[in-house]
Design a protein around this nucleic acid. Structure first.
Lengths: 333, 333
DNA sequence: CTGAAAGCGCTAACAC
DNA sequence: GTGTTAGCGCTTTCAG
């Protein structure tokens, strides 16, 4: 194994110091005289010495690695969150171990345990739901956790997200002000905390408050074809304004409407509750609650760095501002 | 640190065996009598023992971790490749450390070195280019590498991809058969091996062979707005058939054309050389060279598992079949 | 089939 | 400032 060729010991011998001293200069410890430091540095350079991070991790109990738990890499929602996380991680010199849990082979708590076994210094959890077993797994450890782009029911864990209830209400208001009275809510997974406790209540409250009805909640609409197939149902139910959690599903509805010769937004207004690149690239572009996904990821990672170094974190439940970005899928007057 | 509570030593003491024996049952070594094995297992379960992967890594020199080098997580091209990699990695119980190199802060060779320091057992490289320093970094080590969705100039490294030159030629042929004579090639980075040595030659050869001209190669067209802004130029140059490397850029061209009141495909045919979800979700849908991205990732990862366990790999330069998927952005007759 | 013991490469007291 | 010396938690010969 060439890759393991030279160790801290080789450097020490070559520079005629102890390995402790080499360790000190490698770790930027100031208690080293300038000329010995220079000498060691020279040897390090000459021998192309690179510290073995695994050995460092075992000895120091810090791996400078954080774990990421993400449902689906090909969902741009998570990809954009991840990008914010990644940039801040780079800044603070953390590596990222990514664990995707979309396939049922890997359950949330297994994913967590796997990461913990790797001795990650912290983890960022992005799945839209936090099952009890997963929460328990986190609570068994001292490894800090931050939820990004989601929240947990009991506010047990630090999180970075937006005010989903408020955002959705704003979207319904937009429909209402455009004269739409037969509103629908299209969800991916109805059982997540965010959907069950934020989006559905926002919808029900809005209907009640404005004397609208009946309720139309469609569930398990996750991808383009789900949305595409749902459209005829929406038509049968005379929906004229629909809020869709996933933008790719919203695009499915949109395309189905177009293919059926309907006019969007005239026949039906569409808003998505989480916009990625896709929402803005289709025509008509889809009005969206623009969540600051990159920032959510970045803030979550920054919070995690603080937690990992035992710094004070004033606010453990951060809500970032969002924006209701009006595009062509709602009337523009 | 609760997370470090119980070690192999605790299990050994509790089960009244040596740690060597515990290690054997943890690692599925057969040389353990059934009843001692059962006893150890029982203790492991009762104590919730979880092996420390870092210590395992240091002692065994295998971390069951592979590194992924990827330019941009939010580019669906890489996300879809990653998904294939991830699924196979899960199957073979490898974790994934992901390193994104899009920001100039992290250069290719630094990314590689960082991964090597973490003692990854192998790496998959997905960047569209392999600079010399990066190739050197790989060659200094015994850690196996596989290129996924790209190739290197000198075929020094195992790779999984498609025949780009053949695919592009097919696309140009499609234009030609539709009567289009003023063809253009729209590239992201013109200096990558794939672009410089496969796509550009394919284009030039096609023009020459069919007595077409002049050449129209547009470069550095990477995202939607690049494509959007390019359209007027394409018009000025009377382009009637354009092959675009990135599908999101192709969508930009498409949207710009629509906004300008043009008809696609009548006024201009558009084909993208690498299709993600985005190409099929816009209207008109974009005709595309459908690369089997998931499969490329999966095959690359599978190849890497073989390399990591020193198995024979018959073919180090794999080219998977692609498909020219005709949609609405080319005439359908 | 099982145990003893020597590391893996590095960090972190603790001395001097 | 610098060296000595224990480990970190596990794997892996080598005996028996």
């Amino acid at each position: 194994m060439r890759k393991q060729d030279i160790t801290i010991y080789d450097v020490a011998r070559e520079a005629k110091v102890s390995m402790a001293t080499v360790s000190r200069v490698v770790n930027g410890n100031t208690n080293v005289r300038k000329d010995t430091k220079d000498r060691v540095m020279e040897v390090i350079k000459r021998l192309h010495y690179q510290p073995n991070a695994v050995a460092q991790g075992l000895a120091s109990k810090r791996t400078t690695t954080v774990g990421l738990i993400v449902p689906d890499l090909t969902n741009l929602y998570f990809a954009e969150l991840s990008k914010g996380i990644d940039d801040i991680a780079l800044l603070y010199k953390y590596n990222i171990i990514i664990t995707s849990i979309e396939n049922q082979l890997m359950k949330e708590d297994q994913a967590i345990q796997g990461l913990l076994n790797k001795q990650v210094d912290g983890v960022i959890y992005m799945a839209d739901n936090l099952p009890n077993e997963a929460a328990e797994a986190f609570k068994r450890t001292d490894t800090p956790v931050v939820l990004a782009g989601t929240k947990d029911r009991h506010k047990e864990f630090p999180s970075v997200s937006i005010d989903y209830q408020k955002a959705d209400t704003e979207a319904f208001n937009l429909f209402y002000n455009d004269g739409r009275k037969n509103l629908a809510l299209v969800l991916d997974n109805p059982d997540t905390f965010v959907n069950a406790e934020n989006r559905i209540p926002a919808y029900k409250n809005f209907l009640k408050k404005n004397n609208l009805g009946p309720e139309h909640i469609y569930t398990n609409i996750k991808d383009h074809s789900d949305g595409y197939n749902l459209f005829s149902q929406l038509q049968d139910d005379h929906i004229d304004g629909v809020l869709v959690t996933r933008d790719v599903a919203a695009v499915g509805i949109l395309n189905s409407a177009i293919d059926a010769g309907k006019n969007i937004p005239k026949d039906m207004e569409i808003v998505t509750a989480s916009a990625t690149q896709i929402a803005s690239v289709v025509r008509p572009a889809i009005t969206a609650v623009r969540q600051p996904l990159y920032d959510i990821g970045a803030v979550a990672m920054r919070m995690l760095t603080k937690l990992m170094s035992n710094e004070e974190v004033a606010n453990m439940q951060i809500e970032l501002p969002y924006e209701l970005l009006k595009k062509q899928s709602t009337s523009n007057e």
